[in-house]
Design a protein around this nucleic acid. Structure first.
Lengths: 132, 132
DNA sequence: TGTTGACTTAAACCATGGTTTAAGTCGTAT
DNA sequence: ATACGACTTAAACCATGGTTTAAGTCAACA
């Protein structure tokens, strides 16, 4: 199983084929080969690269930056420092975003707690009414 | 300090005035009063509500859902259960998103580790060359 | 041999979440 | 009086990240 079709790649990552075509067009999936009929053939290396693209996408790196990263991958070993700095910087951004979300979730959790308290108070009131 | 202007609200949350106007138009900030000159006056309650809106926004709740939540707040105590269920459901979505991000960050961290290793190897090679 | 089904492309279309612009209204300090 | 700065509105504009459509190609199976 050396190469896979777009439908197989789509199934493997549970992502629409249209999105894979869009990513290729945007430069996130470079050098995808074709068979004689012009159909995409994803190599194992490209599947691995797609996994990386999805990691970056899932952590909200903009497509323009992912594209830059991929261009550096294609350029080869001379860009390793650049890639490293990019990923380190991105990691800090992701940690900041997770911290923001966690902080906001804390605020939401407090609202949940208050709503639970209030629903219990309302139930108690209604019990009182039933007993009248 | 019972009411504040749009510029004060903007400064308090570090959010553009245009966004506050946009949120009001979208129904996220209901019942904002005006002074005689037609300028917005944010009450303390509305500042508190804005804080909640921002918690929801920071955790990626779509504006249409935030609007629904706010409508329920305005309707009053009869919607507490609805609000509670909404926030509970949203909390699960946020936890799932944080988990996805954390998992992807792990993949990114592994790449960072490999790049660090490779940069060290390259440095060692270069040292070897220098010594020739 | 012809008809599916899987694929291709370019281009149009879409939703989301704002931001910017243009034109106008006040309050206040000079 | 006037000029400035803070505000108002409606409408136009924008970036991002896709999705959908239309028209066509090809392989394989009946």
């Amino acid at each position: 199983m050396k190469y896979c079709s777009i439908s197989e790649a789509s199934a493997k990552f549970n992502i629409p084929e249209s999105t894979l075509r869009y990513y290729e067009k945007k430069g996130l999936l470079p050098l995808i080969e074709r068979d004689e009929a012009g159909r995409r053939l994803f190599s194992e290396d490209q599947i691995a690269l797609l996994q990386t693209v999805l990691y970056l996408k899932n952590t909200h790196m903009p497509i323009s930056h992912i594209k830059q990263y991929i261009e550096w991958v294609v350029e080869g070993d001379d860009t390793i420092e650049l890639r490293l700095e990019m990923l380190k910087k991105h990691k800090q951004a992701v940690l900041a975003e997770i911290a923001l979300m966690s902080g906001s979730l804390k605020g939401i959790d407090e609202k949940i707690a208050r709503y639970i308290k209030r629903t219990q108070e309302r139930k108690e009131k209604n019990n009182g009414k039933e007993e009248l």
